[in-house]
Amino acid sequence: MAKTLTQRRHRLLFALTVVLIGLNLRPIMAAVGPILDLIQVNTAINDTAAGLLTALPVLAMGVFALLGGVLQRILGIESTITLALIAVGLASLARLIFHGELGLITTACVGGIGIAVIQAILPGLIKRDHSENAGRYMTLYTAGIMGGAMISSATVAPLSHVMSWPAALSVWAVFALIALISWTVTPTGQSDTSGPVSSTLPLRSGRAWYLMLFFGIGTSAYTLVLAWLPPFYIHLGWSGTTAGVLLGGLTLLQVIAAIGLSAVVDRFTDRRPILLLILATIALGLLTLLIAPKSLVLVAILLLGLGIGALFPMSLVVTFDHMQQPSQAGALMGFVQGGGYIIASVMPFLAGILRNEFHSLSMAWIIMIAAIIIQSLMVFRLSPRHTLSSIDWSVQTTRA
């Protein structure tokens, strides 16, 4: 009985720590949009450069996620996550001093590196120590990610009125400190040297490339909305605080969707019907932004929040379905997320160029709708017959 209680406490502590770590993975980007006009006034950043404030950290997340398996092998999972949390916290804190154009971009890149490492490594730990509840922990983890985006986006504009806007950008370092303390006291199932870890990326696997493209397209919708939804509504005459609350409400819906998904995801062996429903919801939300952004704003926020909130964890779960060996988890997840984030980094930068050129985001919404349609067609190749088999890491090509 005592052993059962101890195990239950350990599981609860681990679940809490996973959520706390997730809270750190978006504020460095999500806090920018609602006060972007204020940042541009004080730093003379144009729309194209403003797109880089989201695009560059996402690009860094992609590039350094590819190194997740290597870092895991050299330093071990636990030590790597500790160092990554420190990097994220210091990047946020540094914005209190370095808040010029170069400083903002540099700190965004440093934070993106820390975020990338965590996102590549933590799923491997979940797979290693909690494989029987991996789907549930992964959705709680993504709920934490979206919760961090929600809190930072909804409160950064009011905070910028109470304190300086650089302070409002740097205050999120407290999330890293809390997560670091929780991570330090959380017991893990094995030591850092508990077994062989694959650091070889599945470059010859067609299926791995397919998963990377699928993840990248879906994440593009998230990065586009994260970067440009508040400026879009500010351009329509809304205040920065109200636009931030809109993004906060959208991310709250993402949290609700992720938590709701965690309760049912393991009941469906075939993920395709759920994925198609999710993608249709996102497409309708983007279409609403295109044709009636003011009158149907609540409908757009509802559709995009629930759709994007469900797509991110489902994309990770689909990748998880391909993992039979925990030792391969870091490399596969790093490859899928790394390449996927590189793809996703293009969309906010492209949207900035389009907005600078046409003084509108309509073309960006149209391009994203077309990409979602392509992603929907990709869903049909994600049958249980394929997803329940492991990635082939050795042959020259793997049938997608």
Rank of each mutant, 00 (worst) to 15 (best):
I308N: 00
M29L: 11
L361R: 02
L38K: 14
G124P: 09
H322M: 09
Q72D: 13
I274Q: 12
N133S: 13
S198D: 09
L59I: 03
H322P: 02
I234K: 14
H10R: 14
G260L: 04
L53E: 02
A2Y: 12
R128Y: 09
R73W: 00
A116H: 05
G148M: 04
S164I: 01
W183D: 00
T319W: 08
A329Y: 06
R26I: 03
I291K: 08
I366M: 07
L96D: 11
T17Y: 02
L306Y: 03
D270Y: 12
G206C: 09
S79E: 12
I291H: 06
S131V: 12
G248C: 07
L303F: 13
L388N: 15
S79K: 15
I105T: 09
S315I: 04
V171E: 01
H386P: 01
A167Y: 08
V117Q: 05
M138H: 01
I342S: 13
V395W: 12
A176S: 04
V379L: 10
S194V: 07
T43D: 10
N356I: 01
L236H: 10
V88M: 02
T387N: 15
T4A: 15
Q396C: 12
D392A: 04
I126S: 10
E78S: 11
K294P: 01
L246F: 14
P196M: 12
Q40G: 02
I372P: 00
V185R: 07
G206M: 06
R95A: 07
T54L: 14
P384T: 08
A50G: 04
E101H: 10
L302F: 07
D392M: 01
T48S: 12
F268Q: 03
R381G: 14
A91E: 11
I74W: 10
I28S: 14
G248Y: 05
S239L: 10
F175V: 06
